[in-house]
């Protein structure tokens, strides 16, 4: 295995013209990034209404991840620090708009306008101090704080990351939580060193932070990428460090609403805050008939 690119050079140097081309012409990488992006998009849990969304792709590179967003009908804005990677994206005529920028400097976007964000194999770069002026903690803070602001209420951000170690994972997660996000880490294929993939799933805003947030973990079927080992018995997903829920909850149908328990709890909270809330009756939170 080659050493981690993050320790070789800063991203704008590492991803030069040659590396950008090499990266994007490897069918293995193309395949892996597409699979990761599909999964990230799934974890974004966008409303199933067939209306295209405005999404961000952070560290979009040559547009491999963004392409998945386009294929699913969404508009996207991609940000990357490597001009060479973006040039390859131009050559490939990606549909998203591209910005040359450094996520560690924060995102310059208006508040509340973005419907969701993905970032594939990029955020771990922020843990490095590539310049004397760089402080990873501050850069992560600038990034997550600005991301939180530009997301619409209730929107999610999903990051597939390769943290170098537990400390890095904690560093990233803490920065996200401090910025106001709720959420945690979803691990696919936890017992396979090769296939193990981590996704940081973050949610913005007060609404329904905990309900079924991380309970959607799925069991992957055995479909494996060409170069990967297939350890079928290990094809599963676990959640670690979920800040809001100690253990996985049984699968819930998203569309069936939040349930009576949740409602009663919410109403109690609202009462405690001094709001006027209708009394609880036997009708509270009951199942409604379909209207059509």
């Amino acid at each position: 295995m080659a050493s981690r690119p993050e320790v070789v050079a800063p991203p704008e140097i590492f991803y030069d013209d040659a590396e950008a081309r090499k990266y994007t012409s490897s069918s293995r990488i193309v395949q892996i990034q597409a699979t990761l992006s599909e999964r990230a998009l799934e974890l974004l849990a966008l409303p199933d209404d067939d209306v295209p969304k405005l999404l961000l792709d952070i560290g979009c590179g040559s547009g491999l991840s963004g392409e998945t967003l386009s294929e699913n009908g969404h508009h996207w804005i991609g940000l990357d620090i490597s001009a060479s990677m973006l040039n390859v994206a131009l050559e490939r005529e990606v549909e998203g708009d591209l910005l040359l920028g450094d996520m560690g400097q924060g995102l310059g976007l208006r508040p509340g306008v973005i419907d969701g964000a993905i970032s594939i194999s990029a955020v771990q770069w922020l843990c490095n101090a590539d310049k004397s002026s760089h402080n990873p903690r501050l850069r992560l803070k600038a990034f997550f704080t600005s991301l939180y602001k530009c997301l619409a209420n209730g929107a999610r951000a999903v990051f597939q990351v390769y943290p170098e170690n537990i400390d890095q994972r904690e560093l990233i997660l803490n920065a996200a939580m401090h910025a106001g996000f709720a959420g945690g880490i979803v691990v696919d294929f936890p017992h396979s060193s090769k296939r193990r993939k981590e996704f940081l799933v973050l949610k913005c805003g007060q609404r329904s932070v905990n309900a079924s947030m991380l309970s959607r973990s799925k069991n992957e079927d055995g479909e494996s990428c060409s170069d990967e080992d297939s350890e079928d018995e290990e094809n599963q997903t676990v959640c670690i460090s979920d800040r809001h829920r100690p253990r996985k909850k049984p699968k819930k149908n998203n569309k069936s609403g939040k349930g009576k328990e949740w409602l009663l709890r919410k109403k109690e909270q609202m009462r405690k805050r001094g709001n006027v809330v209708p009394p609880d009756t036997k009708y509270t939170g009951r199942k409604r008939k379909d209207r059509f």
Binding site: I77, D97, L107, L109, R110
Partner: peptide, 21 residues
């Protein structure tokens, strides 16, 4: 860059209070 993106972008320079549009 499309105007869709332009309408979301603002200047992110330290100390700038209103970087939009």
């Amino acid at each position: 860059m499309r105007l869709l993106t332009h309408n979301m972008l603002s200047s992110n320079i330290k100390g700038v209070v209103n970087g939009f549009p």
